[in-house]
Simulated scan of single mutants.
Amino acid sequence: MATEQRKPLPFIANFAAGAIAGVSEILTFYPLDVVKTRMQLETGKAKHGMVGTLSSIVKEEGFGRLYRGLVPPLLLEAPKRAVKFAANDFWGKTYMGVFGESKMTQQLSILTGCSAGATESFVVVPFELVKIKLQDKTSTFAGPIDVVKHVIRKEGVLGLYAGMEATFWRHFWWNGGYFGCIHQTEQGQLFNNFVSGSVGGFVGTLVNTPFDVVKSRIQGTSKVPGVVPKYNWTYPALMTIMREEGPAALYKGFLPKVLRLAPGGGVLLLVVEFTLGVFRNALGPPYI
């Protein structure tokens, strides 16, 4: 493992590593995201599990539907993951300075992760909104641009930020769980990076799935003038879903989500650490 005295890599290196990792993860696991969204948008008692939803999509709509809405997250993934890891690096250095710590602690890693997630949320909202509307079974949109035009025409530019508050909490809690967990596992070997990233992805998903369900409901519902949306603010919406559909409804789509984000979290960390290693070797001392 490299010494702690090595010079931190420049911001652009963390940004590039996050971007490369994000694109790798989305190309590998995207169909599970489509299945997850479909399950979360289904109100009332769930009719299908993960396998049933997956086979239903393929049978009724064709295999290509599993990649419906891929363009927005693919365009988003590079800046999104880049912001995640660059923000985590920035907030980590900032908090260590504020609290007078010479190295990262468990408490600071959670605080840093939550702050990185909050930062990331502001970047992702419009892309998430477009993706959700394209993934909906009832969607008739021709593509991402059609969604954007429709939303702006009906709700104005700020309509693209519907679900901002729910997205904030979703990313806040996921990143806190993710970075808090990977701090516990010593890194430096690719296998360790994959395992710790997978554990972090599992814990983050366990914590944030209810917020993801609410976000999908808010962004999947079209606003009607003069009518207060049923799902509007995050915590009241959590109570509404739990009261009407039971506590288990807050974990709709959990299986495909965790099957994506647990190994996906491992892939993210593995690719990030591998890419940062390439940068260190290319730059040479004192970065190694």
Rank of each mutant, 00 (worst) to 15 (best):
residue 218 I to Y: 04
residue 104 M to R: 15
residue 100 G to C: 14
residue 50 M to T: 10
residue 132 I to P: 02
residue 52 G to W: 09
residue 256 P to Q: 14
residue 285 P to N: 08
residue 41 L to W: 11
residue 179 F to R: 13
residue 245 E to K: 09
residue 152 I to P: 00
residue 125 V to N: 05
residue 181 C to M: 08
residue 274 F to M: 14
residue 190 L to K: 14
residue 4 E to Q: 11
residue 3 T to L: 14
residue 58 V to N: 11
residue 39 M to Q: 11
residue 277 G to E: 00
residue 279 F to D: 04
residue 28 T to G: 11
residue 198 S to M: 07
residue 223 K to P: 00
residue 99 F to T: 08
residue 195 V to A: 06
residue 106 Q to W: 13
residue 74 L to T: 03
residue 105 T to S: 12
residue 40 Q to Y: 10
residue 140 T to K: 15
residue 75 L to K: 08
residue 186 E to A: 13
residue 124 V to D: 00
residue 132 I to S: 03
residue 161 Y to R: 15
residue 267 V to F: 09
residue 12 I to N: 13
residue 122 F to N: 06
residue 280 R to V: 03
residue 79 P to N: 12
residue 285 P to K: 15
residue 3 T to Q: 15
residue 27 L to R: 14
residue 122 F to H: 06
residue 69 G to L: 10
residue 206 L to G: 04
residue 107 Q to T: 10
residue 13 A to M: 06
residue 1 M to D: 10
residue 134 L to Y: 09
residue 105 T to N: 14
residue 149 K to V: 02
residue 266 G to A: 01
residue 163 G to Q: 05
residue 46 A to R: 13
residue 40 Q to T: 03
residue 45 K to C: 01
residue 154 K to P: 00
residue 58 V to H: 09
residue 269 L to E: 02
residue 224 V to D: 01
residue 209 T to Y: 03
residue 249 A to V: 08
residue 35 V to L: 02
residue 282 A to K: 15
residue 172 F to E: 00
residue 173 W to H: 07
residue 276 L to W: 14
residue 108 L to T: 04
residue 48 H to A: 13
residue 97 G to H: 15
residue 27 L to N: 06
residue 181 C to Q: 13
residue 83 V to K: 11
residue 124 V to K: 12
residue 58 V to E: 03
residue 129 L to E: 05
residue 127 F to C: 08
residue 43 T to C: 04
residue 182 I to H: 15
residue 83 V to Q: 13
residue 158 L to W: 08
residue 19 A to T: 04
residue 226 G to T: 06
residue 117 G to I: 02
residue 128 E to Q: 15
residue 93 K to L: 05
residue 226 G to E: 01
residue 238 L to D: 05
residue 253 G to W: 06
residue 287 Y to W: 00
residue 124 V to M: 02
residue 30 Y to N: 07
residue 112 T to A: 10
residue 36 K to V: 01
residue 186 E to F: 12
residue 100 G to E: 05
residue 135 Q to T: 04
residue 278 V to N: 11
residue 288 I to N: 14
residue 241 I to K: 06
residue 160 L to C: 02
residue 52 G to D: 02
residue 92 G to F: 07
residue 79 P to E: 12
residue 275 T to F: 02
residue 35 V to T: 11
residue 223 K to H: 07
residue 63 F to W: 07
residue 60 E to P: 04
residue 182 I to A: 11
residue 114 C to T: 08
residue 33 D to S: 09
residue 247 P to D: 00
residue 243 R to M: 09
residue 46 A to M: 10
residue 9 L to F: 00
residue 131 K to L: 03
residue 248 A to S: 13
residue 194 F to A: 15
residue 32 L to A: 10
residue 214 V to P: 01
residue 52 G to H: 06
residue 106 Q to I: 08
residue 278 V to L: 14
residue 4 E to G: 09
residue 120 E to N: 12
residue 187 Q to A: 05
residue 45 K to N: 02
residue 61 E to Y: 12
residue 284 G to P: 03
residue 158 L to Y: 04
residue 10 P to W: 10
residue 173 W to M: 11
residue 20 I to L: 10
residue 99 F to P: 07
residue 163 G to H: 04
residue 34 V to E: 02
residue 285 P to V: 05
residue 158 L to Q: 10
residue 31 P to Y: 11
residue 226 G to C: 06
residue 108 L to N: 09
residue 32 L to V: 10
residue 195 V to E: 01
residue 43 T to Y: 02
residue 53 T to E: 14
residue 223 K to E: 01
residue 8 P to V: 11
residue 227 V to Q: 08
